[in-house]
Design a protein around this nucleic acid. Sequence first.
DNA 1: CACGCGATTTGG
DNA 2: CAAATCGCGTGT
Length: 191
Amino acid sequence: MSRLGQDYFRQDAVCVARDLLGKPLLRRQDGQLVGGIIVETEAYVGEDDTACHASRGRTARTQIMYGAPGHYYIYLIYGMYHMLNIVTGEEGHPQAVLIRALHPQQGIEQMRALRGGVADQQLCNGPGKLCQALGIDKALNGMSVAGTALWLEDAAPVEDAAVTAGPRVGIGYASPEDQQRPWRFALRSLS
DNA sequence: CACGCGATTTGG
DNA sequence: CAAATCGCGTGT
């Protein structure tokens, strides 16, 4: 099983968001391997996308999105949850893909411990939940997918029939048009 | 330097 | 349906 390199993320965020479905996301912490299959993503596409943090331009927080693709953009939301994104697109084109849900595969015991004993079905079924389950926080912000702490692996593309596309969630602050864009992708079978 | 709010989750 | 909880962006 080969890893996805930085070049893979050079494509457009919408393509990457769609293509990442079915691919494994893996985390190594304390020698423990924890991870699962990506089953839900969202694309945030540049300064013109009013749902994207980069729509406010280049700031200390968003500068990572302006850099090279294949790096993690991780931030804290509501003072308690982390969001995991991967920067995509060419340098200078601030785009990112938010990982919203996983189908747990490796290190489920570890996930249970970090998630405080919730039902197994709720271990990674949300962007904040999966970060907690995999022990992901801002310490990984700006790191490369080529690193050893967190990475993605290649896998056969999932067929279109298994994919749903719809509007992104939690972006009521965006323009009506941007709220409508079908840039949220999910796998039917494994979600 | 003060203020408002968020790419969410959880419990009431 | 509202609290939790704090860093960031914005305006003074």
